[in-house]
């Protein structure tokens, strides 16, 4: 049986991971000059990242409300994915702008 925290971690990993993938796909399209497609992929990336962020925020809120959370390595790993993804998305957004003005 899947514990709820494990489920949350996997939701974060999966959404953040897919968001990162889409952000990189957007970069590939921008490199080819397909800025419209790049923009669409970036929007999809933001949506996926938003889903991961939402789940993450929920745990933080629960924790702030005094709920005891059994934090394990899987959750650390999930956060790792999320933070990497957010940074990748920010940088890719900037890079796409650079390609646009090239």
């Amino acid at each position: 049986m899947m514990t709820s925290l494990e489920a949350i971690a996997f939701k974060i990993i999966s959404s953040a991971g897919s968001g990162k993938s889409k952000a990189f796909m957007a970069l590939t399209e921008a490199k080819k000059g397909n800025f419209e497609e790049a923009g669409n992929l970036l929007e999809e990336a933001k949506k996926s990242i938003g889903e991961a962020h939402e789940v993450h925020r929920e745990i933080l809120t629960n924790m702030a409300n005094g709920e005891q959370i059994n934090y394990d390595f899987l959750m650390v790993h999930a956060e790792d994915h999320l933070m990497n993804t957010i940074l990748a998305k920010e940088l890719i957004e900037e890079l796409i702008e650079v390609y646009k003005t090239k």
């Binding site: 897919s18 990162k20 993938s21 889409k22």
Partner: peptide, 17 residues
């Protein structure tokens, strides 16, 4: 891992790109 017989490679959504 490709030195041994593999029937299918499953790729996680984190590396979809």
């Amino acid at each position: 891992y490709l030195k041994q017989p593999i029937s299918l490679v499953l790729v996680g959504p984190q590396v979809a790109f």
